[in-house]
Write a protein that binds this DNA or RNA. Structure first.
Length: 511
DNA sequence: CATGGCGTCTCGT
DNA sequence: ACGAGACGCCATG
């Protein structure tokens, strides 16, 4: 009923991996022009073979290209599963490492099309190599987009419009929304819709009209004009909808999380607290030691708290113009701004792609494209203690403990081991010292390359790991959440990529 | 003209 | 049978 397809990749001996040029038609989802055949005059019909039709429950591929998002998602599977990875044969890769270069900015060139040959590697290193390749592919893709932390490439198609609309309405402050805000909710919380063909909006409207669970609500002017009305939940059906939501939630929570822009909002958006508390996982060390691994701050050095500047998420949330409408059936808690309407308030907006960050790495020629430095301030809303973190981490599925923190890399053990390896080799800084650039682990890189990399590695949580971790997600740019623990390092040359891969495979071989 | 509401048809499960 | 997208038409701002 709620299938979400994942690309299964398979690397075979000697097979090569090609990075499709990001932004091209080979890089992911179809463009609306390819899939949408809706025209007012009816001259454009559905002339496509049924199998070629756009279907929201299926990943939309073009010409066998590999979507980096799938790769990244796939990479989140733990090494223990060692899923094979099958990459469509492009037939265009010949040498071990090839690249063409395209202008990224005035000063920096980045690979536009990169091919890497995968051969003569062990099963284990294959999997790990693949994982790293996926990550790098993602880096390259977003690098070329000028938006290295674009979350939009982390796409899992969320299914069931009925549920999504219900979620939107349920999490609204008033319990009723105009369709446009339902759209907004969906695009904001489910990145798939950001670039999805417009057909989904049609389906939303269709659902609203057809489904008896939804009903039109008088707007504030008291008129019920055909256009621009509010949509609410049918009180008589709320219970049933809630049941459906619970079913959906339990059916495949991992997929739902992956489809979300902020997986940590899973519980809040789906309106359900975990049924029971699980004991905290037996973290071997102090809290900050554990958590710093999975959620490094993206700061070259620890930043002091600045109480004078309230965190972004603490800013006042604009009142909805529909705030006057009080849903009678909603539990009181859903009316709390902090847990409902604020979710899709401008506080959660992401900076526009390519907008220079005020706090990038100034040494870099592409400082303007740098991810902003995370501040350690905590939004009051997320100022949770470890118990709060604990609650976030439980959902009856232990695999989410890490997924909650890092939707793109599930295997804590792998990260931890790799981290330890790097640490032993003095390749990363100690927690309380200034963060060392990760690129120092790549002997192939010269100094210039190192300084031109995007340096975002700082494993410091300074004893407040839980909230900081949360803040790192919530504050400033949720796009980066997918990089927690992945150390998004931009590479100025393919040597860097090769070096990274080499170091990664070396690290894994030591495990 | 863009957007929204809604009916009908078709398809996939 | 049911859910959902495609498509079309009309109303509204």
């Amino acid at each position: 009923m709620f299938p979400v397809s994942f690309l299964t990749l398979q690397i075979k001996e000697g097979q090569e991996i090609c990075f499709p040029q990001p932004g091209s038609s080979h890089s992911g989802l179809r463009t609306p022009a390819l899939s949408r055949r809706h025209s007012a005059d009816g001259t454009i019909g559905s002339d496509r073979a049924p199998a070629d039709r756009f279907h929201p429950y299926r990943r939309q591929f073009s010409d066998g290209a590999v979507d980096a998002s799938d790769c990244l998602l796939q990479s989140s599977s733990s090494l223990s599963s060692l899923q094979e990875v099958n990459i469509p044969d492009t037939g265009s890769c010949s040498s071990d490492v090839q690249t063409t270069w395209g202008e990224y900015s005035d000063s920096v060139q980045v690979p536009k099309f990169t091919t890497l040959s995968v051969s003569s590697i062990t099963e284990l290193s294959k999997a790990f190599y693949c994982q790293q390749v996926h990550i790098l592919q993602h880096i390259l893709m977003n690098f070329n987009r000028g938006n290295i932390f674009s979350h939009s490439s982390l796409l899992v198609v969320p299914s069931n419009f009925f549920i999504l609309i219900f979620m939107a309405l349920k999490n609204s402050k008033t319990g009723s929304l105009p369709v446009s805000e339902i759209y907004s909710f969906m695009t904001e919380h489910f990145p798939y819709f950001k670039n999805a063909p417009d057909g989904w909006k049609n389906s939303v409207r269709h659902n609203l009209s057809l489904n008896k669970c939804f009903e039109k609500v008088e707007n504030k002017n008291g008129n019920t004009s055909r256009k621009g009305c509010l949509w609410g939940l049918n009180p008589a059906k709320v219970e049933k909808m809630q049941e459906e939501l619970h079913k959906w939630r339990r059916k495949d929570p991992q997929t739902i999380r992956r489809s979300m822009a902020k997986p940590e909002d899973f519980d809040r958006l789906l309106g359900e607290k975990p049924d029971r508390l699980r004991p905290l996982p037996p973290y071997p060390s102090t809290n900050n030691t554990t958590l710093k691994r999975v959620a490094p701050t993206y700061s070259p050095a620890p930043l002091p708290l600045n109480p004078a500047q309230p965190p972004l998420a603490c800013r006042p949330v604009p009142q909805s113009e529909y705030a006057h409408i009080q849903p009678s059936y909603l539990p009181h808690t859903t009316l709390q701004p902090s847990s409902s309407f604020a979710l899709y308030s401008p506080c959660g907006q992401q900076p526009a792609a390519g907008v220079p960050s005020p706090s990038g790495c100034l040494n870099s020629p592409i400082a303007g494209k740098m991810p902003p430095v995370y501040k350690v301030g905590l939004p009051g809303e997320y100022n949770v203690d470890l118990r709060g973190m604990h609650e976030l981490l439980q959902d009856g599925d232990t695999s989410y403990d890490i997924d909650t923190l890092n939707p793109s890399l599930t295997d804590l053990q792998l990260q931890g081991n790799l981290w330890e390896e790097l640490r032993k080799d003095s390749l990363v800084s100690e927690p309380h010292g200034p963060a060392t650039h990760l690129s120092t682990s790549f002997p192939q890189q010269d100094h210039h390359q190192q300084t031109s990399c995007l340096q975002t590695f700082s494993p410091t949580f300074e004893g407040n790991a839980g909230p900081c971790c949360k803040a790192a997600y919530e504050d400033e740019d949720p796009d980066r959440s997918c990089w927690n623990g992945l150390h998004p390092v931009g590479y100025s040359g393919l040597e860097s990529l090769a070096g990274y891969l080499t170091s990664c495979t070396t690290s894994i071989s030591l495990m």
